[in-house]
Design a protein around this nucleic acid. Sequence first.
DNA 1: CTGTTAGCGCCTTCAC
DNA 2: GTGAAGGCGCTAACAG
Lengths: 341, 341
Amino acid sequence: MSTMSDIAKAAGVSTATVSRVISTPELVSEDTRARVQAAVERLGYRPNSAARSLRTQKSTAVLVIVPEIGNPFFARIIHGIEQIALERGYTVLLGNTENDPVRERAYLEMIDARRADGLILLNGQLLRRAAGVPPSVAADLPPLVFACEYLPGTDWPTVRVDNAAGARLAVQHLLDLGHKRIGMITGPLWNILTRDRLQGFRDTLNDAGLAWDESLMISGDFSLESGAIAGQKLLAREDRPTAVFCANDEMAMGVIKAASQLGLRVPADLSVVGFDDLKFAEHWTPALTTVAQPMLEIGRTAMEMLCDLLDDTAPPRNNSILKTKLIVRASTGPPPVVTRL
Amino acid sequence: MSTMSDIAKAAGVSTATVSRVISTPELVSEDTRARVQAAVERLGYRPNSAARSLRTQKSTAVLVIVPEIGNPFFARIIHGIEQIALERGYTVLLGNTENDPVRERAYLEMIDARRADGLILLNGQLLRRAAGVPPSVAADLPPLVFACEYLPGTDWPTVRVDNAAGARLAVQHLLDLGHKRIGMITGPLWNILTRDRLQGFRDTLNDAGLAWDESLMISGDFSLESGAIAGQKLLAREDRPTAVFCANDEMAMGVIKAASQLGLRVPADLSVVGFDDLKFAEHWTPALTTVAQPMLEIGRTAMEMLCDLLDDTAPPRNNSILKTKLIVRASTGPPPVVTRL
DNA sequence: CTGTTAGCGCCTTCAC
DNA sequence: GTGAAGGCGCTAACAG
C-alpha cells in the first residue's frame, strides 16, 4: 500500500499538500489538486487510519455495547446505528457482552485504549456495574448515548420510546375489548423497561377503576422460554386472567405457546399483547397484537446524537423519545362470554 | 489519559521497559516489572491503540462483512465470531451491506485504510462484484475467511456445512415418510447455497428412482414473505406436492403460512422441512422439522481460522466443513392417505 | 536486563 | 498556495 509521501512524489508536491487535498481541498489550487487526485487514484491510495488517529487523537469509530447480538430486537437497533455510521464516516465496533461483567469491562477498556471515540449502550445497567472498574474507566467516559434502556437518576443522552405510554396503549386496548382480569408478564424486576411498562400497566388499570391483582404479575427474563413458563403458571390457575400483557414479543410468543399446550385458544379464551413488533410477530400464529417500537429509528437517532456530540457540528440533543404504536392483529379479542366462577 | 512515558517516569524506567512489561514481561526482571505494573494500575494506563497500530503495522481488528445484520442466522454467526475475537484480543468491525455494492465497496476500502487486518465474508458474491473496485482493493486482499457461503472455483479458506448433504438428510426424511411428490423452495438461483442444496435435493430424488418435476421447484429469496408467495403458487396447483423442502427456515415458515391460508394442515396435508434451525423454528406452529446448522460454531471456527492466519501461531486450516443434523419436529409426517386424482 | 534511538504515516503550525 | 519540520505514542533494533 502506498503512503502519502509516495503520492507526494508522484504528484511532485509535498506531503503537506497531499494532506490538504484530502482534508481541506479548498485550500489547494485547482491544478495541484487535480494532479494530486490523479496520483491518489492511480496508486489507489487510502490514508492510513492508525497514523491519522495517532495524529488527530480520534479514531472515528464508535463502540456499540449490546447484551446479546443474537436478539433480533438489538440486531435491528444495531442495523440503524450502522446506517448512520456509514453515512457519517464512522466505523462500528461491536461489543457483545451476554451481560457478563468481565466482557463488559473488556469492552470498556477499548475506550481507554482510544479505539473508539464514543459509546452507544444498549444496556442501562452496564455503567452501574462498571462501578468496580478502574477509576480511569469510570471517571472519564467518552461521549455516550443510551439506546432503549437508560440509567434512572442520571442525565446521559438517551434514545428510547415512552415505555409506560406504550404499555398504556396495550392495556387500554384490552380494556376496550372488555377485559377486566388482565395479567402481565414482566421482564426482570430490576430492569428499567420492566419498571416503566409495569407502571403503565398499573396506571391504566387504576384509571379504569380496576384493582390489580399482584398475583397476576409474573416476571420472566424477556426470553420466549421464560414467557412460556410464566404463562403456564398464570394460566393453570382457576381464576386465570382473560388477557395477558407481555413486556416483549418473545414472551408473548411463549405465553401463546403455553396457552395452546393447555388447550386454550388465542384469542377466544385468552388475549395476548406483546411489545416491540419483531419481524416474526406479524407471522406468528395467531398474528401478534403488539406495541411497535421504531427499532431502526432508535438506532439511527442514537447514532446521530452520538455523531453530533462527537463532531460538534449540530447542537446535541439530550433526549429523544420516539413514538410507539399499537398494532392490532389476531391475538386479541373480546373476553370469553362464559366465565366459570 | 496517561501515556507510556508517564508510566516510565512514575516507575523510574525508560519507555522501552514499560513496553516490554506490557508485551514481553518475561524479558524484564521481577522487581522492575512489579514497579511498572504498579504504576500502570495506579494511573489506569492503557496503551494507545493507534500508536501501537502505526508502529506494528497491524490493527488487531477484523472486519466482518454481512449482508444483513438483522437476519437471525447471520446474527448468530457473528455472535460466534465475536466470542473468539474477544478471546484472542481482536476487535470486530461490523460491515452491514444490504447487498449494496456501494456499501460493500465502502467497507472494503477500510481494508486499504488498514483499519482491519483480516476479513470474514458472509457473502460469497462480494468479491466477484468487487471486480469493479480499484485494483488496490481487488489485488492485495488481506487474510480472509468465508463463512457459510463461498466463491466456487476459488480456494479461499471457508467454513460451512455440507449443504448438499444437509439437503439429502431432509429429502431422505421425506422419502422415508412415504412422500413421492416433493417440491422445493430454493433461494436465488445464482446463490451457491441454493445450488448446493438443490443438488442434494435432486440427487436424493434420483437415487430413489423418482423423476423430479422442474415445475415443483420455485425460487424465493430466503425471506419468509418470499416463501409464502412461492408456497401459494406451489400449493394452489391441482397436483400439488405432498411435501416441500425449503432452502431455509424462514421460507419454510412462509410456506406453512401459505398452506394454512389455503386451508391445508401441516403436516396432515403437507409436510414442510426447513434448513438452519433458527431459534424460532422450534417454537413455530407446528414446530419446524429442519436441517440444523451449527451457526455459533461456524462463526467461532471462521474467526479461529482467521486468527491463525493472522497470528500464524497455528498452521492454518484451509477449509472446515461442519456437520448438519436433521431435527425432526412436528411439521413433517406421512403423506395424506387419499390423493385425489 | 535496560536504555537510547529511530521511525511507523499523518496533520498542522509556521514560514515563505 | 505551498513546503519544511516536528511530534502524536509506541515498539524494535541496537548498544551497553
